[in-house]
Amino acid sequence: MIRMTTTPPDDSGATPPVAAGPDPVEGTATTGQSDRAQYGVCAFLALVGGLVIVDAARTGHAISAADPIGPKPVPILLGVLLLVVAAIYAVDVARGGAGEPEAGEDVDLSSPIDWRTVLLLIGAFLVNAVLIDRLGWVISGTLLFWGSAFALGNRHHVRNLLIAVALSLITFYTFAIGLGVNLPAGVLQGIL
């Protein structure tokens, strides 16, 4: 989805302006406090830039008549640009610049980041990634959907399980069997 970049010409306030309102976690420049976590982004960009340059330095020389510049210059250029952008970014943050967190239909930016939900979702996601080849999509996908619904606060465990199983079975039969998409049957091979 594209980030909302214009402020809508809205005068009723029905669309909450993104940067408005005091926000304990995402204090923006408008609240008078700079968003210090942004320095982490600068550090990340600089780190990636450094990594790209180091990797390019280790790439073998492979210059030929058909390729006069070889595989090195482009990554080195990207790495240098990343370092430059990281520096400019840091200056921007120091001068009080802040990016607007993305808004959306279901996004309530006045609440702090709910890390518990996010970590539980990541957990459900990883369970699927680890188990998909061993147990097959029907089981791992069920766990993924059920776990995600649980993480997002739905407590109808039995109903969720039924929905999860139904979704996994429907997708498996439509995509893997019907359309020939790669989805593993896993331990249920021969049963499904």
Partner: peptide, 30 residues
């Protein structure tokens, strides 16, 4: 909403896995 966003993760995982049929892509996706 729990079903909606659980469903997005579900279909996203399915789609990403189906490209190359390797679980590695799911870690990459995360």
């Amino acid at each position: 909403r729990p079903y909606l966003y659980a469903g997005i993760l579900f279909f996203a995982s399915m789609g990403a896995y189906a490209v190359n049929a390797q679980p590695f892509d799911l870690f990459l996706l995360l």
